[in-house]
């Protein structure tokens, strides 16, 4: 479908939760250093698909996963794959920001610390670098020792992004990362995504079509656990091939 090099390659993925067939025969190549958005009505399986990428899904009981998810050619679900190594490659932004129960500085330094960085100077550098990266540095540089929860929700979401970037991932997964945010914070996050796609592969779940249009290069339309259509943003939003996609884009199904 696309000629670009895939970063994540999903092959015949099937997911059953509690015996329900949630994802059906998913095959898709997610291109490197682009923004790919999953759209579709709520409950269609967007979050579930996203969670198969960093293997958070199999933490739940009663989940059966078959098929392959290859990241840089390495099969996530092969028995010798080391899960923590895979997860480190991917930053995650959830629907609501969840800062860790510690101060602002420690939140950003957390990843580096658990991966063995002890040097105080280096940690200072990392914290400043990534806080600048999400343009939060000027807002928080005088109160780095404050609990992260004192920040506004929008700031918290940018903090969570900085925290994720600080472990140097290659992929950023976002599950409706702006749904709890006000319009201004939403816009800042969207701008950050556009900056980040030079260096990272971004996979975004969104139910806001305008957002999908603003930020994504490719769009995947999912309906009841199946991929209905996959193409460039223009193709899917302006000239959908499938009737279901057309109906969804026009707002007939939601």
């Amino acid at each position: 479908m696309t000629t670009e090099k895939p970063h994540i390659s999903v092959k015949n993925l099937n997911v059953h939760i509690d015996g329900n067939h949630i994802l059906k025969n998913i095959s898709i190549d997610i291109p490197d250093k682009k923004v790919t958005s999953f759209i579709g009505p709520s409950g269609c399986g967007k979050t579930t698909l996203l969670k198969t990428f960093n293997r958070l899904l199999d933490r739940q009981g009663n989940v059966e996963i078959t098929g392959q998810v290859l990241v840089d050619g390495e099969d996530l679900y092969s028995p010798d794959t080391e899960v923590t190594h895979i997860r480190k490659k991917m930053g995650l932004l959830s629907q609501r920001p969840f800062p860790l129960p510690m101060n602002i500085y420690d939140n950003v330094a957390y990843g580096a610390r658990i991966h063995g960085q002890r040097d105080k100077k280096e940690l200072d550098r990392i914290v400043e670098h990534y806080l600048r990266g999400v343009s939060l540095w000027d807002e928080v540089k005088d109160r780095l020792k404050d609990p992260a929860t004192r920040l506004s929700i929008g700031q918290q979401q940018r903090l969570c992004l900085a925290r994720g970037l600080a472990v140097e991932p290659e992929i950023i997964l976002g599950d409706e990362p702006t749904s709890a945010l006000d319009p201004v914070s939403t816009q800042r996050i969207e701008e950050l995504f556009l900056e980040l796609k030079d260096k990272y592969t971004l996979v975004l779940v969104t139910h806001i079509l305008r957002q999908a249009r603003r930020v994504s290069d490719y769009i995947v339309f999912i309906y009841m656990g199946e991929i209905i259509e996959f193409g460039t943003t223009e193709e899917v939003l302006l000239n959908p091939r499938e009737k279901l996609t057309k109906d969804y884009v026009k707002g007939y199904i939601s």
Partner: peptide, 12 residues
């Protein structure tokens, strides 16, 4: 999501 946050940072 708190646990998920730690896991996705590569935490054990």
């Amino acid at each position: 999501d708190i646990g998920n946050a730690v896991y996705s940072l590569g935490g054990t």
